[in-house]
Amino acid sequence: MKYLPALRREHLGAIVLDARDSLEECIRALADLYREGPEVVGDMLIEIADLKDRAELERDLDGLGHAEHCRDELVAELLGDIGGAKTYLDPRVTHFALMQARSLAFEAQRIATAANERAHELAKLTAIVRGVKADKRRLPFC
């Protein structure tokens, strides 16, 4: 299922959900939208970037303001214009829909298994680091 995120392992045991295929489709749709109205799309993208800067400033002021909310609304509007971020699965009762559902279940199981393994690994590493820090605190200073 090319449009669903795929699980990838990177160096040092890190796991990554790769959504490249679905994002490529969104970028193609954004390019088509830009061709139809470059000024409108360009202005929206600039406004989204400006609102990001304003939201960061507001966050430094203990979250006062509404720039982040406005930015989220603009991003949602732009996503809607390029076809949304939803992946629709086949609703029919066919062999293709069955295979699609099985593939989705298999990929979800792989993601869950990898995430659980990573969580256990991180829990062990965190306990080791905490143990080392606790040992350092117990040592008398010379």
Rank of each mutant, 00 (worst) to 15 (best):
I15V: 06
G37S: 13
L23C: 00
L104N: 04
R8P: 10
L61P: 07
L57D: 01
L74I: 05
E68M: 15
D90H: 05
D81C: 11
D81Y: 07
A76M: 03
G84L: 08
D90Y: 00
H69V: 06
D32P: 08
E25W: 11
L33W: 07
L17S: 08
G63H: 10
L104R: 09
V40K: 15
G65D: 09
R102C: 02
D21M: 05
I48K: 13
A19R: 07
G37Q: 14
A55M: 08
L57Y: 04
R35D: 15
D60Y: 06
V16T: 00
R9K: 11
H95R: 12
H95T: 04
R8A: 07
L30R: 06
G80Q: 09
A31N: 14
R28G: 04
R92Y: 04
R71E: 00
V75T: 03
L45F: 04
M44T: 03
I15H: 03
D62V: 08
A31H: 13
R54H: 02
M44N: 10
C26Q: 13
D32R: 15
L7N: 02
E47C: 07
Y88R: 11
E24A: 10
R28Q: 09
H69Y: 12
R8W: 11
L7Y: 05
G13K: 10
G83W: 05
A85L: 10
S103K: 15
R71A: 01
H95D: 13
D50T: 05
Y34K: 13
G42P: 05
M99P: 00
A6Y: 07
G63S: 05
E24S: 14
L12W: 14
R54Y: 03
D43C: 06
R9P: 00
S103A: 15
L104T: 04
A6W: 02
A101H: 12
V40Y: 15
E73T: 01
H69C: 12
E77Y: 13
A49W: 13
M99T: 04
A19E: 05
D50I: 03
C26D: 08
D50G: 10
I82N: 05
G63I: 06
G84Y: 01
G83E: 00
R20Y: 06
H66E: 12
L12P: 01
E77H: 11
D60H: 13
R102Q: 09
R71S: 03
F96Y: 12
E24H: 15
D32W: 12
Y88P: 05
G42T: 00
A85Q: 09
H95W: 13
E36T: 11
L45N: 12
L61R: 14
E73N: 08
L57H: 09
E39M: 05
L45V: 09
F96I: 06
V41T: 04
A19Q: 06
Y88K: 14
P91L: 12
D50Y: 13
H69F: 11
D62G: 01
L7P: 04
L89T: 08
D60K: 14
S103Q: 15
C26E: 14
A31D: 14
H95A: 02
